[in-house]
Simulated assay, not measured.
Amino acid sequence: MPRTPGQRAGLSREAVLAAAKTVFAERGLPGLSMRSVAGELGVAPNALYSHVADKDALVDALLDDQLAALAPPSPDADPVAGLRAVMLATFDLLGRHADLVPLYLARQGARGPHARALGAAMVVLLARLGVDEAASARVVRALIVSTLGFAALAAADAPLGNAELRADLEATLDWIVRGAAA
């Protein structure tokens, strides 16, 4: 069976993602392109398409890769505590990678397997609170939007400090979850 261009170049998805991280860190989103990533790897741009479909898929993979650091809440965790913990861990992660916050906002979150696993775990906890399936999608979205919003404020060097924003996020998460369960 013939190998694809990416396989002939000795590339892996992980290598492409590592190069994309480097390019993004050095040049930001405007400098991130299939051509710039290929240049970082010393290959022709067409070699990347065996591993990512296009720049949007590359950005989605970058975002989802960061979420791999987050453990989904246990299905038997206290639902309010589990939801709160995963969103606060997300806020903390975004605080360590503030350069990615605009990407999460522009892409309206992440779409990869890690993002889906976190979302599915959140839906399980919401179901345990009595939130039906239709409403749980809205609640998850509200939790994510709130977390991204607070992370964006923190990344923007807002007058409020990170600790105060995190405390406000904690209260907001509780309001959303308790309101959804009511």
Rank of each mutant, 00 (worst) to 15 (best):
M1V: 14
P2T: 14
R3S: 11
G6H: 10
G10M: 12
L11C: 05
S12F: 03
S12M: 10
E14M: 03
A15K: 14
A19I: 07
A20E: 04
T22W: 00
T22N: 00
E26Q: 01
G28I: 06
G28P: 11
P30E: 12
P30T: 01
P30R: 11
G31F: 06
G31R: 00
L32C: 01
V37C: 07
V37D: 02
A38T: 04
V43S: 05
V43E: 04
P45Y: 14
P45Q: 10
N46K: 06
A47W: 03
A47E: 06
A47S: 13
S50A: 15
S50P: 05
D54H: 11
D56W: 03
L58Y: 05
V59T: 08
V59N: 02
V59G: 03
D60G: 03
D60N: 14
Q66P: 00
Q66L: 15
A68K: 04
L70C: 08
A71E: 11
P72Y: 01
P75V: 01
D76W: 07
A77V: 09
D78M: 07
V80S: 10
A81R: 15
G82E: 09
R84M: 13
R84F: 11
R84S: 09
A85K: 14
V86P: 02
V86E: 08
V86C: 14
M87N: 15
L88Q: 00
L88T: 14
F91P: 03
F91R: 00
G95R: 13
R96N: 12
R96M: 14
L103Q: 00
Y104S: 02
A106P: 02
R107W: 03
G109E: 03
R111N: 06
P113M: 07
P113R: 15
H114Y: 12
A115Q: 09
R116F: 07
A117H: 01
A120T: 09
L125M: 05
A127V: 05
A127P: 05
R128K: 11
R128V: 15
L129C: 10
G130M: 10
V131P: 08
E133A: 14
A135H: 11
A135P: 08
S136W: 15
R138I: 01
V139A: 05
V139I: 14
V140M: 02
R141T: 15
A142R: 11
A142E: 13
A142P: 02
L143G: 08
L143C: 05
S146M: 10
L148Q: 13
L148K: 01
G149D: 10
G149L: 13
G149R: 00
F150M: 11
A151V: 05
A154Y: 00
A155L: 04
D157C: 03
L160P: 01
A163H: 06
A163Q: 12
E164I: 12
E164C: 12
L165V: 13
R166G: 02
L169M: 06
E170C: 03
W175T: 10
W175C: 15
I176Q: 05
V177F: 09
V177W: 03
R178V: 10
G179A: 14
A180F: 04
